[in-house]
Nucleic acid binder design. Structure first.
Lengths: 214, 214
DNA sequence: GGTATAACTTTACGCTGTCAAGATTGGTCG
DNA sequence: CGACCAATCTTGACAGCGTAAAGTTATACC
């Protein structure tokens, strides 16, 4: 193994160029970022990767498998962002939890196409074989960040003791709902000031009060 | 005008059968209920209505317009359901608000395809002419039910005074988020008992506590 | 009653996902 | 070192999709 492309003159464009799997994923992600999941077609991905329209079938079972892989990648980026926000936030654990919620909403607004990609219907029931789908695993990691944050709030008694997951679920529902409603444009007609952070702050404060009290 | 179909022997199947617009909507809604929005194609709708594949173009500008009309219809059914739930619930206004939230989640779980139809991306920016899109109006009516419920809670002082819309938004975000997460299957791996009403109750109770305090 | 017009059909085009068959290559074993 | 094998990639084809253009038929109105 002296470099993945050692058998080619340049890095591209022979029968076996060695890294098509990754190139296809990158091309697909570009298309998502430019035009949303609707812009992702197997043929468009192949065109961008400068291969024939059937080449992707040697790396992905079908279009759904490609989209699934893209969703997993988006979830990974999302999880990293959330974790970064939690770790870099300061203040009380509850304040940091609020920052985490705001980061959740901000990610959705900053990366609407990736966010929608993560929540495409039908992503989670793949055939494969028995086990849970990869995207379920990826989303579970994102949820884990939230659960950890709840635990951090429970330790000094800011949130009641007990199984943290129900609390995390409530928090998740709230920020996720806000993010989705904002993306849907369902809130466009209302005089809520500063669509983004303002609303996130409002909602997470209400949520925080609900979580605190017994 | 002595009856819309007076010029036909039977009720169906001539060049002008008089009611194709409605028939197309019904066929489209059937397809949604059977296989989700993915199963809705202009040609499938036309087939089910037993007309040629281009006939729908005399009643809808394009596929997006048909889907938009279906979404409006779904929102109307949804709004009726919510209003019915609010009016038939008893107990304190806060308890009735909880019932409303549970009804929101239950509708999503009972009618997943219609619910997703209501929240398809891109539904809300139609060309038309200046004014807000019809689906925005339809969703605003659903939101109105929530706002009214919040107002009813404010009257006896169960929720602080002031503009009800921020409170309604928080409540909406919470139940909507839970509904979407459940539909996405994001919560499948967790030992939350009784996916439906249990979680809705849990979440709405936490939400209610957050709304009450100050 | 004849005619404009709306409703509907037919035909056609380019796009899509997917499959089957052929071409080309890199790696492995004799 | 050379021949083969299997993986990779291409080409060609098919059905289904959304949509536009052109042709057909029935209705409504003068």
């Amino acid at each position: 193994m002296t470099g993945a492309a050692s058998h080619h003159r340049t890095a591209a464009r022979r029968y076996h160029h060695g890294d098509l799997h990754r190139v296809l994923l990158e091309a697909g992600m570009e298309l998502v970022r430019e035009g949303g999941t609707e812009a992702v077609s197997l043929r468009a991905v192949a065109r961008r990767a400068e291969v024939s329209h059937a080449a992707p079938y040697h790396h992905f079972r079908d279009k759904a498998a490609l989209v699934e892989a893209l969703a997993v990648e988006a979830f990974r980026i999302f999880t990293r962002t959330l974790r970064g926000s939690w770790e870099s936030a300061d203040g009380s654990p509850l304040e940091r939890l609020g920052a985490l919620g705001t980061a959740y909403v901000r990610f959705a607004l900053d990366h609407p196409f990736e966010f929608r990609l993560m929540h495409l219907p039908g992503l989670r029931q793949m055939p494969a074989a028995g086990g849970a789908s990869p995207v379920s695993g990826a989303s579970a990691e994102a949820f884990g960040v939230l659960v950890d944050a709840i635990k951090a709030c429970q330790e000094p008694g800011l949130i009641p003791e007990g199984d943290p997951e129900p609390f995390a679920l409530t928090a998740w529902s709230t920020v996720h709902g806000l993010a989705v409603l904002l993306l849907d444009g369902l809130l466009d007609g209302y005089p809520f000031e500063a669509q983004g952070g303002e609303l996130a702050g409002l909602v997470t404060r209400t949520l925080g009060r609900g979580l605190m009290s017994r």
